[in-house]
Nucleic acid binder design. Sequence first.
DNA 1: CGAATATACGAGCGTTCGCTCGTGTTTTGC
DNA 2: GCAAAACACGAGCGAACGCTCGTATATTCG
Lengths: 204, 204
Amino acid sequence: MADQARPRRRQARGERRMAEILSAAAEVFARTGYENATTNAIAAAAGVSPGSLYQFFPNKEAIAQALADRFVADMRTAHQEAFASVDFAAVDLDGLLDRIVDPIVAFNLANPGFKALFARPDMPAELAAAARPIQAALLGRVESIFEARAPELSAAERERTAGVCIRIFQAMVPMVIAAEGGERDAALAELKKVLRGYLAPVIG
Amino acid sequence: MADQARPRRRQARGERRMAEILSAAAEVFARTGYENATTNAIAAAAGVSPGSLYQFFPNKEAIAQALADRFVADMRTAHQEAFASVDFAAVDLDGLLDRIVDPIVAFNLANPGFKALFARPDMPAELAAAARPIQAALLGRVESIFEARAPELSAAERERTAGVCIRIFQAMVPMVIAAEGGERDAALAELKKVLRGYLAPVIG
DNA sequence: CGAATATACGAGCGTTCGCTCGTGTTTTGC
DNA sequence: GCAAAACACGAGCGAACGCTCGTATATTCG
């Protein structure tokens, strides 16, 4: 009953190990996907025994959960930077797209494990829950742009439009990442073209 | 070696069983995803013993493969109907979108197992191979529209534009399917809005 | 120093799951 | 009618994998 098992006091060494294990997990998840990633493989990739791994994480899902938390934190700052650098009212649509799309694409490019964890259709409920706050925050930010640029939109329209933008983004980022060099620039330009075509009638 | 194991002669009963097993597999895949679907669960859902299942399919992947083939065949006819009913040169962009988007969305709505098999990021290579022909065919059809309506496009631009359209489609169909009633109509309208905004500059 | 706790190891337990095998029943072909 | 082949059953094998446990070393604290 309420076997709360007070969290053990970590040493600096332990904190380092946890970070190493998470990095190894990100790499293994990115390479093999969530289901096919074995905890022993993660431990091996981190240069650690299975037993040690389980001193820091109670089970496989907790690893994914902690990794999700780390991604969410990183992504939040990436988003904050992206949205903070823009005066929504002053800049034109093309400028807006450049300032917001580029850094978020860059984040996804730098964190290949991110998609392997969150792009899965049969994601454990807890992982989905971890991803939700970042999704909600992103949605809110996009909505706030529309609020400033297209105040005539109803709340429902605003939310729907923002949701569609994010959806488009998530669909096309893999395309951008998969492309190489000049191809990638073309794909990125195409992503912006789609968003521009969709948004031009809404926020001139 | 080349232990070709000539294919056994099926009875009518056997053909029926195979179809039943595939339908059961579609249902189980749709409900639990590919990895979490157990062959015993598929057999049970089909009202068949595990041993019987393995008289028709050598392994789990072969079941998915055969199901993929069935989906591909069904989808091919759905696409054929969708594209055959339109005179690309005569109709305007809105009409074009209505005539093509609606039936393909309807197909996805009627085949919920389809996505569970093909929307997976860590799809076995053989499954991806089974999906490729249908993707290629769809790409070709979309390209042929552009060829008729925007002959000034280079081959590379044409292919890229068609690929983006399909990508957008695949990203937004789940949104349409997840929505209910009026919400669904709104989502469908939004899908067309995205495509229209993207394509209007290309094929007036 | 010594006790308490954190970290580390890796063999292997328990369970799940894809798949097999021995056996029995139905259908086909002659 | 009778053999051969297809169909059907379900207990359970073997391997994979998440995770544990006994044990040993390192670190902290008084």
